[in-house]
Design a binder for these strands. Structure first.
Lengths: 345, 345
DNA sequence: ATTTCTACCTTTTGCGCATAAGGTTTTCTA
DNA sequence: TAGAAAACCTTATGCGCAAAAGGTAGAAAT
């Protein structure tokens, strides 16, 4: 690793001059000197030491990305492909903008913030956080922050939230189910906060439009990491006969459930219809292909980075809550049903 | 952000004393002073500035992870869930060991190495690299490096390679197909380098054991990012009738292909058997569930980090090529066939 | 009573970089 | 031809931290 000082000594000039060449301030350096320095830069493949630069500039060029994601408890694998997809989109955009990406897969926001401060990270992207995740955050945190698919108290930090029009997505896919004749619909969610709650509201609105009311027993909540358990799935299986359709808040849940049911003889969509949310790779790959709510993950990632850099660079903008459009993607996991038809055994 | 200097001034003591308390060198500081400093550390939530520490220590506590992965060209999404799974495993282990993780999704190793030097990264984990990826690397690169599922020239860097016993895995799954009566087997790979080539060798060995020889036309190569194309899939579809089984070098390829075929009326496994490699989430979720070669991704990630830290800390060890065990996971995508039976139309 | 030791501090230095401030020349302007 | 300006340098400083080296008391050892 050659340093500016090394090169300055080799050429018998000052470090300032070398630094000026590196930063293209060639108006202050003679053509001849520029060439001599550039030759060395090439020859020794100079790369700046960002730690040092970060010290003087008080910024690091790092963007921290924190994922709270469905991660297998024992194996630590990221199971839901949605997160991988999003990560790819974020990474591409962050790099394209000349920044570095540091990731944390955790939902301990205090820990994340410690890391962020430690590294003097320029900005933070939080994915999938809920209100409760923020309660342990003591200090008021002031770094530029963008949330994706999250729900946070406004008091604690100034942020832009990038999400989907979840209410509309849930409304529309519920309408689709209703239009297909379904009346006994189970709503399967991670929790009753954050995006899942918004989706629930959309679901309810659709029901009301059809003169139905949400019954409490139709709301099935399985916290992250529990739906995969045999016991949870068996419980769902036992309840399946009460419904003609399951509306799930993620493709991941939908697919897990669908397979468990199918393995036990429930025919989908003949006996039971299932819908997802996200439109990730899985929904296209399972059979029957999953009817779900589609989104543009690439755009989500790009927008997140875009707003974050605006905040970092101090560009003015007014949005603080961006809702990306959403559309129902009809595939093969829902079949029409006579409204009066009761759920099959 | 409070600094050591700030606190030293507030207490009217030197920065060294504060630093000593922070590092637990309390034998050099009076109990009373220790307490005064600790009170401030708490109160102002001191976090060290790692950029500064990195400068003095000449190490950064960052581990760089570079993925060369099947990424959708236009959307930049990471499509193969295997990478997400691995990323989760790596992140957990890296953090558990007190390091930070910086990721690059790219196959431009020169660029990666630039980043690594710039950040003074302590070590590097490269995933899925091939020999050719290294040709543009000019300088001899000396940082501790662990490769996962890669194939690199030994001259250019000193590394530990973590992989699977690919030869055995391919051998065994081929034997399984042969035992089931298959004789016309297509071998579908990303390329003829790296792990895919090793897998090919295992495949060939199995064929030889059964007195068969690999026919050139049975080797189907689709470079990353091309197999998803309609034209590639159609080409495969046209060739399908020549085979009774497709052996794929990844679950991703297998699943893509399976679905395309099934959508066009080919019954799997009745008309055609398919096998994968990796055993990621998809293989469990598709129907028919995919018969594939299983591995322990968590262990792969843990071992990679483990060896990397050994290299970083200078612990002696002798391995330079670790092959993790592999086992055939039999599911539902292969059916027995009469050896004399010719491929179905 | 002198020396040695220990407990507890501080001063100083430097990591690599950026930049403010300060020099010379040489060239231009009035 | 004096004075200003431009062109091209250098010196000095500090970011936050760690650690080597250098104190200064008072207690213990000789």
């Amino acid at each position: 690793m050659i340093t500016i000082k090394d090169m300055a000594e080799m050429l018998g000039i000052s470090t300032t001059t070398v630094s000026n060449v590196i930063h293209g301030k060639t108006s202050e350096v003679s053509q001849k000197t520029v060439e001599r320095v550039e030759k060395l830069l090439e020859e020794y493949e100079y790369v700046p030491n960002i730690s040092a630069r970060s010290l003087t500039q008080n910024c690091s060029n790092i963007i921290g990305v924190a994922l709270k994601c469905r991660k297998d408890k024992y194996t630590n694998l990221i199971m839901d492909p949605f997160f991988g997809e999003l990560l790819g989109a974020l990474e591409a955009e962050i790099r394209a903008r000349g920044y570095f990406m540091m990731i944390y897969i955790s939902n301990d926001i205090s820990e994340i913030i410690r890391n962020v401060l430690t590294w003097n990270v320029d900005g933070l992207i939080l994915v999938g956080m809920l209100h409760d995740d923020f309660i342990r955050v003591k200090s008021r945190y002031k770094k530029p922050t963008v949330l994706i698919d999250s729900y946070a108290p406004r008091e604690i930090m100034n942020y832009v939230n990038i999400g989907l029009d979840d209410e509309k997505g849930a409304y529309e896919i519920t309408c689709y189910l209703l239009k297909m004749g379904h009346r006994k619909i189970a709503f399967l969610a991670d929790n009753m906060e954050g995006v899942d709650y918004i989706r629930f509201q959309g679901h309810q609105r659709a029901l009301l439009d059809y003169g139905l009311e949400m019954q409490e027993e139709n709301l099935l909540i399985f916290h992250p990491g529990t739906v995969e358990r045999e016991s949870s799935l068996r419980e769902l299986y036992c309840q399946a006969k009460n419904y003609t359709a399951f509306m799930c808040c993620s493709d991941y849940y939908a697919v897990i459930l669908m397979n468990y049911f199918m393995d036990r003889g429930i025919k989908i969509p003949e006996d039971l219809s299932v819908t997802g949310f996200d439109d990730n790779l899985m929904s296209r790959i399972v059979r029957p292909a999953l009817t779900t709510v589609g989104q543009d993950v690439t755009e989500k990632g790009q927008l997140a980075v875009d707003y974050l850099l605006k905040m970092i660079q101090g560009t003015e903008f007014s949005e603080s809550d961006v809702k990306l459009p959403v559309k129902v993607v009809i595939r093969d996991s829902v079949r029409p049903v006579q409204p009066e038809e009761s759920p099959k055994e």
